[in-house]
Amino acid sequence: MVATAVAIARMRSLFATVMLAGVFSLLSALLFVNLDAVDVAFTEAAVGAGISTVLMLGTLALTSRVERPSSRSPVIPLFVVIATGAMLIYGTLDMPNFGSPDAPAQLHVAPDYFYGTEKDIKLPNVVTAILASYRGFDTLGETAVVFTAGIGVLLLISGLRTRRRRDEDEEEDET
């Protein structure tokens, strides 16, 4: 996965970049299966590898396919990135070991959710129970965000064809 990400950073053809982004998403879905998050894995495979690749290809069709080499030097971004990464790694030093069962994240609410799902909701899939019931307001907020984004996209894109026609008319008037 690191190899894919670095290849994306170095690639100049945007088409290949988008395809590699799809590969990256699919690999991360496999990783999610390994980490026991099957629901997340198939959402990521459908949304990350499917829909976003299609959206990006659509954008490429409407814009250009090749990236121009940048004139700026990569030194400052590289410095910023390395500094941020070092701070984040310093932050992980206090974290419990990967997969340890007595980590704080495992001890507080998770057992409650398991108990409640088994006794009250009686659904086999705990993730569904939390998503729709215990954290239903989160999901409501998520739907609101998606709705707003949909409106935004429609407003931005909708006038495309009429604007193009108007531009062409103006050009004809000028000539």
Binding site: A105, Y113, L131, D138, T139
Partner: peptide
């Protein structure tokens, strides 16, 4: 069972 709470948050 693994902790389901991060899964839910990440789905959103």
């Amino acid at each position: 069972y693994s902790n389901p709470l991060p899964h839910v948050l990440i789905l959103t």
